[in-house]
Design a binder for these strands. Structure first.
Length: 366
DNA sequence: GACCCGTGGTC
DNA sequence: TGACCAAGGGT
């Protein structure tokens, strides 16, 4: 297949393609906050945030994050709790844990300068083949491929590549093609231009081919198959889980929260005590929750009737959470943290547990 | 290679 | 409204 693509590139007008694409990009590119300079740190932060995340979502997070942590050293020295809080709501939280670990590595091993060699930058946590190429090309103007979903969609149409872009090994085909296609004079603009084209013109559904600056070089458009490319196999559906959660409060008005383990789903985030329910147990959700609070956290609470439900969809799971409110009667040895509602604002919660808190706020506690 | 890891927007 | 998505990486 790689030979197949190499053959197509033999007769492809590479120089004209580069010029048309880059000229369009320079004229039409969006004014995004991470494009104000080529600071490798800011490019890096933006690329991590943009992984599987829309530009419009990222913009406010990026601005706040850079204000809070303007430099490598600032992020390296920051309190982990504060860093996680700055990521709250963005999702894929291991991204920011890896980012801070990598930034510490840059501070210590590379004197605070983001390395500009493919080998060194690849060793940094959270920097995979895409992010490596993105930083090297955008920040350092080095002609490395940065193959993301946009690049695979655009090039699959331009070159009529019918491989399944959902398969990991397929990325290699597009990297090989990009080595040939990329502008050696302006790799930064070239890589960003392909992604910008994918975001604005060569969209997944109903691509705006009549506005496309490289339409005359597009094999798929020429053959009228642009809407059938790229080929992308389906992902499986998320699996539903029945859960119960308790918002516990005591007579001083404090709420009892729990820090999730440092690995796995929502690692290191805070949550209201909760468990996965056993529908075969014959016990009510409320009783299962009450026993769990006692056994797991040594807390006796007077639980409400069902106060509300939260549904939260992850990429691979659906949580169906029954929410109860509990007045704490007796606390033994517990690893729950009692906090005031003001202190609550300092801790990072996943969106699902923000929804749980909203149910508590709306409930009538009389 | 398969699976895990979030969230909000869109049609 | 369910399905699909959006600048992927780790294990």
């Amino acid at each position: 297949m790689i030979n197949d693509v190499q053959n197509k590139l033999q007769s492809f007008p590479i120089k004209e393609f580069q010029d048309d694409l880059i000229n369009w990009y320079l004229a039409e590119k969006r004014d995004l906050p991470w494009r104000k300079d080529q600071d490798p740190y800011k490019v890096w932060v933006s690329e991590i945030m943009l992984q599987q995340t829309r530009v419009d979502t990222v913009i406010p997070y990026f601005n706040a994050f850079i204000t809070k942590f303007p430099t490598i050293n600032a992020l390296a020295d920051a309190d982990e709790e504060e860093v996680l809080k700055a990521w709250e709501g963005l999702g894929y939280y291991s991204r920011v844990r890896n980012l801070q670990a990598a930034v510490k590595e840059v501070k210590e091993t590379y004197s605070g300068k983001v390395p500009d060699s493919p080998l060194e930058i690849s060793k940094l946590k959270g920097v995979g083949p895409y992010t490596k190429g993105a930083i090297l090309s955008i920040a350092y103007n080095i002609p490395e491929p940065a193959v993301d979903g946009n690049v695979m969609r655009v090039l699959s149409r331009i070159l009529s590549i019918w491989e399944d872009i959902a398969k990991p090994k397929t990325r290699k085909i597009f990297e090989e093609a990009t080595y040939e296609l990329i502008s050696k004079e302006d790799p930064s603009s070239f890589n960003q231009a392909v992604m910008e084209l994918g975001a604005l013109i060569c969209t997944p559904t109903s691509p705006k081919c009549l506005l496309c600056p490289v339409r005359e070089h597009c094999t798929a458009f020429d053959e009228g198959v642009q809407s059938e490319l790229p080929i992308k196999s389906k992902k499986k559906k998320p699996k539903p889980l029945q859960m119960a959660a308790a918002v516990l409060y005591d007579n001083t008005g404090k709420l009892y929260i729990h820090k999730r383990p440092p690995a796995g789903l929502l690692a290191n985030l805070w949550e209201y005590p909760n468990l996965e329910l056993d529908s075969m147990s014959g016990k009510t959700y409320r009783d299962q929750l009450g026993e769990f609070l006692l056994n797991e956290y040594g807390i006796e609470a007077e639980l409400s009737e069902l106060t509300g439900t939260v549904e939260h969809v992850f990429s691979h799971l659906i949580w169906n959470i029954s929410v109860f409110i509990g007045k704490v009667k007796n606390v033994n040895d517990t690893n729950l943290l009692p906090v005031t509602e003001e202190e609550l604002q300092r801790y990072a919660f996943p969106v699902s547990h923000q929804k749980i808190y909203q149910i508590y706020k709306k409930a009538d506690l009389s």
